[in-house]
Amino acid sequence: MDYTNNLVLENRRVRLRPLEAADFEALKAVAFDPELWRYTLSRADDVLSLAAYISAAEQARQAGQRYPFAIIDRITGELAGSTSYYNVVPDDQRLSIGHTWVGTAFQRTGLNRAAKHLLLCHAFDALQYERVELETDSRNLKSQEAMRRMGATEEGTLRRHRFTQDNVRRDTMIFSIIRPEWDALRHSVFAEFDA
């Protein structure tokens, strides 16, 4: 993974490009819904926390720890949220997709699944990785259902895994998709985006 490369991924539904400080104003329109951040590790639902979120994402990219993307709805042209690659381990040919949030108006529209399609294609086809992991708070039933609908396999729960907002320790559910599963998923769950 080249963190210095300005990677742009696109299908007919969504465009992913590197998240940048200039996205602040556009993201304010979708980020300031406290419900979006209920189960996340941090918040970005006001001016200060959104600025801190974008700054932390940019710093993590510069440090080679995370590759944050802006999610752009190709139908409306609007910025809809953000997602990232992280926990990238080239020696093991695996990475994680997460830090994902999508504004309420864009939920249940297929936008998130279209973004996951791009990230999975890049991970399995361009990077030639063997495993993609996804994590969610065990309380986040909506996220778990979305992961199952896209064909990810639930692997288990890491109990009292990490601190989340307000120093609450969360249990983290781990899901994955592996290379032998990808071809069938891209032609079923993700078929509408795989042109």
Score class of each variant (00 low, 15 high):
T4Q: 15
N5T: 07
L7Q: 09
E10R: 13
N11Y: 14
R13A: 10
V14K: 09
V14R: 04
R15T: 14
L16W: 08
R17C: 10
P18D: 10
L19F: 04
E20C: 15
A21D: 12
A22W: 00
D23M: 04
D23R: 07
F24S: 03
F24T: 11
K28H: 05
K28C: 14
A31T: 08
E35R: 09
L36E: 01
W37N: 06
R38E: 13
L41C: 00
S42W: 06
R43T: 14
D45F: 13
D45W: 07
S49T: 15
A56K: 06
A56Q: 10
Q59N: 14
R61H: 11
Q62T: 10
A63E: 11
R66P: 03
R66Q: 15
A70C: 13
A70W: 00
T76A: 12
L79K: 13
L79R: 14
A80C: 10
A80N: 13
G81L: 07
T83R: 05
S84R: 01
Y85P: 11
Y85L: 11
Y86G: 02
N87M: 09
V88G: 00
V89Q: 14
V89C: 04
R94Y: 01
R94L: 15
G98R: 08
T100V: 07
V102I: 15
G103Q: 12
G103S: 10
T109W: 06
G110P: 07
N112V: 06
A114G: 15
K116R: 15
H117D: 10
C121M: 10
H122L: 00
D125T: 11
A126I: 06
L127F: 05
L127W: 14
L127E: 12
R131T: 08
R131S: 08
L134H: 05
E135M: 06
E135V: 04
E135D: 06
T136R: 05
T136M: 12
R139M: 05
N140K: 02
S143Q: 02
R148T: 08
R148P: 01
R148Y: 02
G151D: 00
E154R: 09
E155G: 06
T157E: 09
R159Y: 09
R159P: 07
R160D: 06
H161M: 04
D166L: 12
N167V: 01
R170K: 08
R170D: 01
D171C: 02
D171M: 04
I174V: 15
I178M: 03
D183M: 04
S188C: 02
V189P: 02
D194Y: 12
A195M: 00
